[in-house]
Design a protein around this nucleic acid. Structure first.
Length: 720
RNA sequence: GGGCGCUUGGCUCAGCGGUAGAGCGACUCGUUUACACCGAGUAGGUCAGGGGUUCGAUUCCCUUAGCGCCCACCA
């Protein structure tokens, strides 16, 4: 073989990937043997349309590709379905931000036009993201690529909603949400930034109703919400207030009567141990309010101004202005006991930095009691396993305390909830997936669909089966479902994995997957989060360009342990590049020793010398341990062992010995046997290496003189 | 506030009841007909601190400190 002594991934990788694609090796129909050992299915956690490839994705798909390639070579009918998530508010944000550069808001455009814009974005960037994945060399069946807003997928979403609705599991309720007064939408916790602000803690005296000379002092950072107070809460075991529980207090200024209630939640050591409860404007207070059946009085509106429930002189004031006025008025009344400086975290809108207001709003919920029970049992009984196991704790703790799922969002981009409101009786509604011909309530009005959109996770929860065609009874669904393993980060165990499990049990009656592989979070060497905005992110595409995809994959796989974080060290990628070169040169040497004679590697040659014995025995042991490691999803150990064998046993010891066994003897039998062993060990090493470093290994395979060679290494038989 | 994880040679990490290993890096020597992205070696750690269990602990338990993550309703 006339080959360069330096392996250059950049030229090879593109060529090899095209070769695989052209031959359809990623498709189960083309890659599986006629008599397959069964199926092995994986669904790719769909990246957001907004995203571009980061180290987390790279690690995540490296693992999945190793599994899929391993199973494919073992003779399973393997399918790996890729796709993209429409990413709800994240996508809406990005497009909105882009529009803002042109001085246009989404409200200027209107809903229809805006959604068109998001679709344009998706068309443009969806493919870019998938191309990035291809650069890593992953073997997804691209012909089955799905998007969570595709027509068929939308059908699945509607069917799922219908299912819950018809079973009486969907309801509408008022709940305190995070509201951005500028963006006019509720936001999830993930969409908030917390900023430290210097504020004050005001100690305000609330007089007792039956004895105006006595009072209870409450501490608050938000005095202006006092007009919405419907109780004062104390800890039941707080001696100071024991005798006051159940008595009434007056809210200063407005002199409305409110009860003193007892609640475990109250921290006796904070402030005065007595808390004003404003169920409308505080999540915690809302919880207390629910427990004690308190009235909810909203005093701040959607624009963060005081509404008609506040005293007249306050109405229309911004919350901050109202606070000032409240303090002045309280001071005049002599109701302020003291003021302490207080530093606290203020929630801000991550998009526009406006201060978030908590306020009650109507939302849609799915009852979780039934689904959670089933989902819990599936993991408890071991039908679904977490790897590493301890991650199941995260799942259990969430599932055991799960609250009803708020599935509605007040954004524009997403699946519209198929609920229609009667215009005659506006409180009444009905379900209709298609625009209804007439109102099912009053039979004569023109019903209006809710503006709300479903939580993105509602649709991603259906991913394992909706990608296979559900609710249609497709051949794919029948063949490939349930899937086998799901690989993802621990950050979305509750958001996503849990929801896939119960959704699958509800919709299909089956578990969505058997094994959940939790991959580590990739952090910087100093343990910092990798983030673009912090400038701590590392772009995997740059690494691929610099060292090659094989090296990048190797470097990441090498660092896989059971830990929750991976401190990423680029040195390992460099080691990967060296290793790729080592493999390349070992193969070059073997090819050189052999010439053009085709070697049969179907069976292991018989050893003659001690080194022969050693290398063959170690290879055999390696195959066994590698299978064991992979079965247990211990990828780091697997690649480290293969590396060690290849470099130190095969190259350092056997190759050196082989030089002597071939060149320093006249023994023809020993010479040819040594050549056979060289080729045999090389090819079998390549097979195992292939699942982590697919490109170099395939390239070498293509060049080697082997008898009865398969068309490609990717469909070769896994060593026995 | 609660929960979880981590703390082992310069760096990234294994390991595990009987006084420590790998890769990278460093150093020494060697090799220029597979590979200098190489080979053969060497140095380097009181296994975060304290306490306990034990014949014996890096390994088990408690505790302190630091780091990280998740959850949460400190007004």
């Amino acid at each position: 073989m006339e080959i360069e002594s330096q392996y250059s991934p950049q030229e090879t990788e593109k060529k090899i990937y095209q070769f695989w694609m052209k031959n359809g090796f990623f498709k189960p129909e083309k890659s599986a043997p006629k008599k397959s050992k069964g199926t092995y299915t994986v669904v790719l956690p769909p990246p957001n349309v907004t995203g571009c490839l980061h180290m987390g994705h790279t690690l995540n798909v490296t693992i999945q590709d190793a599994l899929i390639r391993w199973k494919r070579m073992q003779g399973y009918k393997t399918l790996w379905i890729p796709g993209i998530d429409h990413a709800g508010i994240a996508a809406q944000n990005v497009v909105e931000k882009n529009l803002r550069k042109e001085g246009v808001s989404r409200f200027d455009l209107g809903r229809e036009k805006f959604i068109e814009k998001v679709w344009e974005w998706k068309q443009k960037y969806g493919d870019i993201i998938l191309d990035q994945f291809k650069q890593i060399g992953i073997s997804c069946d691209w012909s089955r690529t799905r998007f969570t807003m595709d027509k068929d997928y939308t059908k699945a979403v509607e069917t799922a909603f219908e299912y819950y609705y018809n079973k009486g599991m969907v309801y509408r309720g008022k709940r305190v949400v995070n509201w951005c007064p500028r963006c006019q939408t509720s936001l999830s916790e993930l969409e908030l930034d917390h900023q430290e602000e210097q504020g004050s803690l005001w100690y305000i005296k609330y007089p007792l109703a039956d004895d105006k000379d006595r009072y209870v002092t409450v501490a608050t950072t938000r005095p202006e919400t006092m007009f919405g107070d419907t109780a004062v809460a104390v800890n039941p075991s707080d001696k100071r207030y024991e005798k006051l529980i159940g008595k009434k207090l007056y809210i200063p200024i407005i002199n409305r009567e409110i009860p003193i209630v007892a609640d475990q939640m109250i921290d006796q050591t904070f402030g005065t141990g007595a808390v004003k409860v404003t169920p409308a404007h505080d999540m915690a207070d809302a919880e207390i309010g629910r427990k004690h059946d308190l009235e909810i009085i909203q005093v701040i509106d959607e624009r963060a101004k005081m509404n008609q429930n506040a005293p007249v002189q306050y109405q229309g004031l911004k919350a901050a202005e109202a606070r000032q006025k409240t303090i002045e008025e309280l001071a005049n009344l002599g109701s302020i006991e003291k003021i302490e400086p207080y530093t606290h975290q203020i929630p801000k809108c991550s998009r526009c930095n406006a201060t978030i207001e908590n306020m009650p709003s109507w939302q849609w919920f799915v009852k979780m009691e039934g689904p959670a029970k089933k989902a819990l049992a599936a993991v408890e009984k071991g039908k679904i396993k977490f790897h590493p196991k301890h991650w199941e704790n995260l799942y259990f703790s969430w599932m055991r305390n799960v609250r009803d799922w708020c599935i509605s969002r007040q954004i524009w981009w997403g699946h519209k909830i198929p609920i229609w409101f009667c215009q005659t009786e506006p409180e009444k509604y009905f379900l209709s997936v298609k625009p209804p011909k007439k109102c099912q309530i009053c039979k004569h009005c023109q019903p209006k669909q809710t503006e709300d959109v479903l939580d993105v996770w509602f649709s991603s929860a259906l991913w394992p089966f909706a990608t296979l065609g559900w609710p249609k009874k497709t051949k794919d669904l029948k063949t490939f479902y349930p899937t086998d393993s799901l690989t993802t980060g621990h950050d979305i165990v509750n958001l996503w994995v849990s929801r896939m499990i119960f959704s699958s049990l509800e919709m299909t009656g089956a578990i969505p997957f058997k094994d959940i592989v939790i991959n580590a979070m990739v952090k910087t060497k100093d343990g910092k989060r990798m983030s673009k905005s912090l400038g701590t992110g590392i772009d995997p595409l740059t690494l691929i360009e610099k060292y090659g995809a094989d090296a990048t994959r190797f470097g990441l796989a090498w660092q896989i342990t059971e830990l929750q974080d991976m401190r990423f060290d680029e040195a390992n990628i460099m080691a990967g590049k060296k290793f790729a070169n080592k493999i390349w040169n070992a193969a070059r040497f073997v090819g050189w020793q052999i010439g053009s004679e085709k070697i049969d590697v179907a069976k292991a040659p018989k050893p003659i010398t001690d080194v022969d014995k050693q290398v063959l025995a170690e290879l055999k042991a390696l195959v066994r341990s590698t299978n064991e490691f992979l079965k247990n999803f211990e990828f780091g150990k697997a690649i480290q062992d293969i590396y060690h064998f290849f470099w130190h046993t095969f190259c350092d010891i056997y190759l050196e010995a082989a030089k002597k066994q071939i060149n320093e003897t006249q023994d023809k039998k020993l010479q040819s046997n040594t050549r056979n062993i060289l080729m045999y060990v090389l090819v079998n090493s390549l097979k195992m290496l292939h699942i982590f470093m697919p490109f170099v290994t395939e390239q070498i395979y293509q060049l080697l003189p082997i008898k009865n060679k398969k068309k490609a290494l990717i469909i070769e038989n896994w060593p026995k």
